[in-house]
Computed example of a mutant assay.
Amino acid sequence: MVKGYFLFALFNRGPEIELMAIACQTKGVNCTDPFSVVSGKNCCQNSSAESDMVAHGLQSSASKNMIHFAQMVTRGTITMFDYDNKDENKKHYGQTVPPVYNLKSIPNDFPLFLCHGGADTLADVYDVQHLVDTLKDHAGDKLMVRYIEKYGHSDFLLGVDAKKEVYDPLMAFLKLH
């Protein structure tokens, strides 16, 4: 068993571990770094903070949440949960297919700070650009988009320079609004 996968298995049970097992058998997937399997390669993680996250931070997720995430990824949609049953969808949503989340319903004057990285495979550059394009009518001073090319998904939380790259600009933005 690969070391990183073993650490992940210690702290997780259920469908997530099965998903991880499948991912780790995929050619080109590096399971010595369990975070990068789903979120991309990170550049700047603080190794002591990473140890804390492995020891305390890995939490399982509800199966329905994981299925919903997988539905949106595989279908390329941003919709509510699909019960894969027209009657169930009709009962929950009043229609046979799950409704699309209306991102344009975000008020144009609501302050939004979007920060993304070039190596992040969960919030990849194309998806963030799609969101930014959807928000094109947003008030200019209420929308800040910050791109950090070298950052992967976990770098935003565990990056040794995250304070300077992410949190200082975020706090400055929040102070303005």
Rank of each mutant, 00 (worst) to 15 (best):
P169R: 02
S47Q: 15
H130C: 13
E149H: 06
D82V: 07
P99F: 14
F11P: 00
L7S: 13
D127C: 04
D133V: 00
V166P: 01
K41H: 08
S63G: 04
V54G: 00
S39C: 10
Y167M: 10
D84M: 15
H153G: 06
R75Y: 01
D87F: 09
N65P: 00
K136G: 05
G40K: 05
K175T: 11
Q71L: 04
F11E: 08
M80W: 02
F6Q: 15
C31Q: 01
M144F: 05
E16I: 14
S48P: 03
R13L: 15
Q129M: 13
T77I: 09
A62G: 09
M53A: 07
Y151I: 02
P98Q: 03
S154Q: 10
V100C: 03
M1K: 05
D161V: 08
G4P: 02
K86V: 13
N65K: 01
Q45M: 14
F156H: 01
A55T: 10
K27G: 01
S39K: 00
L112V: 12
G152M: 02
L143W: 09
L19G: 15
Q95R: 15
D84Q: 13
F35K: 00
I22F: 12
H130Y: 11
D124G: 06
T32A: 01
K90H: 09
L131E: 07
C115L: 12
Y147L: 10
V160L: 13
M1S: 10
V2E: 11
F81M: 12
S61H: 09
A123P: 10
K91E: 14
C44G: 11
S47F: 03
M1C: 05
L10C: 11
Q95K: 15
L19V: 15
H116Q: 07
K91G: 05
V37N: 00
G76W: 10
A162N: 09
Y147N: 10
K142P: 01
C115K: 06
E16R: 13
T134S: 15
